[in-house]
């Protein structure tokens, strides 16, 4: 019950503060909602949102697939881990903005450079999470598979993937929140459209209502994805786990 009150409470607080400190640069949520409606119906909001989401989706899918595959290799093959774990450490600590700038210089202000920069930033996080997961696998289940002579496919489906799934979901959750943010930053830095690009333009005009309208729309999409896709998926995939607390 309390969690349903959380966001309305935030909106109420915002409304109160906007009323108390009434100023052109501090619009109320009602004004921002009006701006959202206007930009969605008559402006470019949906187009920009679509462009950004396409970039997020592309970077997310590639980073998850590649990162999961590499994480499995790192977790299973000791020499690979020992030889390349330093690279992971570098990747984890590489400032996101540096990667974007370098790729923009090398490849130009292109779609490929932007998405690639996001993937490179996200990849080490997925690899590390999945690697730790694979390392923690219970060896006794492997023995179970061997005793009952399960085929490779059945071992993969019944023993390997169920152990991997919680870590992939954890990587997806943390990775997605990272990607949402850095895509916007990279769009501000250089792109031909998208939420970040539009916010950068609005910044030049101090259009706070516009910036907040775009931001709120983006957050709504993120929340819809979280509650509509990620959480139900997680609940369904992990329903076998004992309920905590």
């Amino acid at each position: 019950m309390l969690e349903w009150l959380s966001l309305p409470l935030l909106l109420l607080l915002w409304q109160v503060l906007a009323t108390v400190f009434a100023h052109r640069l501090f619009p109320s949520p009602i004004l921002v909602a009006q701006e959202m409606w206007d930009t969605a119906t008559a402006g470019r909001l949906l187009l920009d949102l679509g462009k950004t989401l396409a970039r997020v989706a592309m970077a997310f899918v590639v980073a998850m697939l590649l990162g999961t595959a590499l994480g499995i290799v790192f977790g299973r093959i000791r020499w690979v881990d020992r030889l390349f774990s330093g690279w992971l450490l570098v990747g984890l600590n590489l400032p996101a903005i540096v990667v974007a700038i370098v790729l923009y210089i090398w490849l130009g202000l292109t779609e490929v450079a932007l998405v690639l920069a996001v993937i490179i930033n996200k990849l080490p996080l997925v690899v590390t999470t999945v690697r730790e997961g694979v390392r923690s696998f219970a060896t006794e289940f492997d023995e179970l598979g061997r005793v009952f002579r399960l085929s490779r496919l059945r071992r993969l489906r019944l023993i390997f993937l169920p152990q991997l799934l919680p870590f992939v979901l954890a990587a997806a959750r943390t990775g997605l929140s990272l990607i949402w943010k850095i895509v916007l930053v990279f769009e501000v830095l250089g792109s031909d459209g998208g939420v970040g690009y539009r916010i950068a333009i609005m910044f030049q005009f101090f259009d706070i209502a516009g910036i907040l309208a775009y931001t709120a729309s983006f957050i709504l999409v993120v929340l819809a994805f979280e509650y509509g896709v990620l959480r139900p998926l997680e609940r369904r995939a992990l329903k076998w786990r004992p309920v905590q607390g």
Binding site: E140, L144, F148, L150, L158, W240
Partner: peptide
Amino acid sequence: FVFQDPRLLPWLTAADNIRAAA
């Protein structure tokens, strides 16, 4: 084969644990 511990796959129901081995 019965192991020292039950060694059931925690993500499968009792019936599916049986079907996993057989």
